[in-house]
Amino acid sequence: MRVVVDLSRCQGYAQCAFLAPDAFRMHGEEALMYASNPDDAQRQQVLRAAAACPLQAILVDQLKGRDAPVGTSPS
């Protein structure tokens, strides 16, 4: 699955690191590091973390590759 965190919104509440520790980790007291591509097995945890974020800064993929571009340019 795909995840991006809007770190300009993130205020380091660390709810995500508590709820999905394999996908979100604190670096120092306040800085968040996250896995951009957590394993699908973590999906429920990651969704819970996204829902719990007080700043709603976590975006999880809303579709599953329906619209993915091909690897090379069509001509």
Binding site: M1, R2, V3, V4, S36, N37, L59, V60, D61, Q62, L63, R66, D67, P69, V70, T72, S73, P74
Partner: peptide, 15 residues
């Protein structure tokens, strides 16, 4: 680090 999608964009991609 492929970006998650907020929705389908139904685009032609010339990459």
């Amino acid at each position: 680090t492929t970006l998650p999608r907020r929705r389908d964009i139904d685009a032609e991609w010339l990459l």
